[in-house]
């Protein structure tokens, strides 16, 4: 029995380059991931939160999910797609369930938004337990245990996971604040909050696989507990993930073997700082042009970061007019950083 584990799809993404292109990027990689899952014939797909970029998404992202789920079901009729709502999927008003409840109504899609849900799969042989963000945030009140009657038990959680030392409960006051550093990759690249979320404890005993969501880089937390990471490089600093392959995980529940399934995400290039201290705009433009020409495969369609050192605001404005404006038209997203001159 194999489970496909995805998280942090961020459908309806609004950030980056005026929102043009990047919103399509997340849909493209999501469709590619579902197509790959159909090729593999995986019967259980779990998505550990942040399916949508925000809870106020309009119809297109929901339609994109609906289309991809329908296509997957056509090719793998017995597939179950189990979804736990993440922080980004959860409206501020607890009276509303948000967009995940909408996709939960689709055939073959099971969703948890405001309460823990248990969903049977593989003809009742296995149980997937979905813990949405709203429940995980309740902290100490969180109590989930494997289904003793099931052969396979899969847990899906959205949150910043840490390993508890010994058998004691979570340390006092160990709220999201202290989880910030451990969370690493961060939801949407900005890191969980300092003291906001609650802190709960989950025993790994009895779970064949724990699918985690909220951080954008894949990570192994324990032998059978993994973050799959996001499918696309998104957030305020996608260059942080420039060297990391993007994709999803497949896990065999009998052996615990986990495989990374890559998808083709947008390439990110972060240049070394262009030092313009000894010259003006012309020098900076020349040095930057040389650096851009040296990017393997060119810069077209990539996420490009250009740090420039030692240019005055006026010089940088001139550089922007003379060169950067043209570069901006070629790349998917351009970020310029103005660094101060180094003291000599």
């Amino acid at each position: 029995m194999t489970v496909a584990h995805l998280s942090d799809l961020h459908l309806g993404y609004r950030g980056g380059a005026g929102g043009h292109g990047r919103a399509e990027d997340v849909v493209r990689v999501f469709e590619a991931a579902f197509a790959r899952i159909a090729d593999l014939g995986t019967q259980l797909v779990v998505i550990a939160g942040d399916i949508f970029d925000h809870p106020h998404v309009t119809a297109p992202p929901i339609a994109a999910f609906s289309r991809a789920a329908a296509r997957l079901r056509e090719r793998v009729p017995e597939v179950t797609v189990a979804v736990a709502a993440g922080a980004r999927d959860t409206p501020l008003d607890p009276a509303h369930e948000g967009p995940v409840a909408v996709i939960g109504a689709l055939a073959g899609v099971e969703a948890a938004t405001t309460a823990v849900r248990r969903v049977r799969f593989a003809g009742g042989e296995g149980t997937v337990t979905l813990v949405p963000h709203l429940v995980a945030r309740r902290g100490r009140a969180l109590k989930v245990k494997p289904d003793r009657g099931a052969r396979w038990n899969v847990l899906v959680v959205h949150g910043a996971v840490r390993r508890a030392r010994g058998s004691g409960a979570a340390p006092r006051g160990s709220a999201g604040a202290r989880g910030r550093a451990a969370a690493g990759g961060q939801a949407a690249g900005v890191g969980p909050a300092a003291t906001g979320g609650g802190s709960g404890t989950v025993s790994l005993k009895g779970w064949d696989y724990v699918a985690l969501g909220s951080r954008h880089t894949r990570a192994k937390v324990a032998a059978r507990a993994h973050y799959s990471g996001s499918l696309e490089r998104i957030g305020p600093d996608p260059w942080e993930e420039a060297a990391v392959d993007k994709g999803f995980l497949t896990a065999r529940l009998d052996t615990g073997a986990v495989r990374f399934q890559p998808v083709e995400a947008r390439a990110a290039v972060s240049l070394a700082a262009v030092d313009a201290v000894d010259g003006g705009t012309a020098t900076a433009a020349r040095r930057l042009s040389e650096a851009l020409a040296g990017v393997p495969g060119g810069i077209d369609g990539k996420l490009l970061r250009v740090p420039v050192r030692g240019l005055s605001p006026e010089d940088l404005a001139a550089l922007d007019r003379e060169l950067l404006a043209r570069v901006r038209g070629r790349v998917a997203e351009l970020r310029v950083d103005a660094l101060p001159a180094k003291a000599r």
Partner: peptide
């Protein structure tokens, strides 16, 4: 209302 991500402490192997 509290916001931020939940911290889940995993126990065991």
């Amino acid at each position: 209302q509290r916001l931020g991500l939940a911290t889940i402490w995993l126990q065991g192997d």
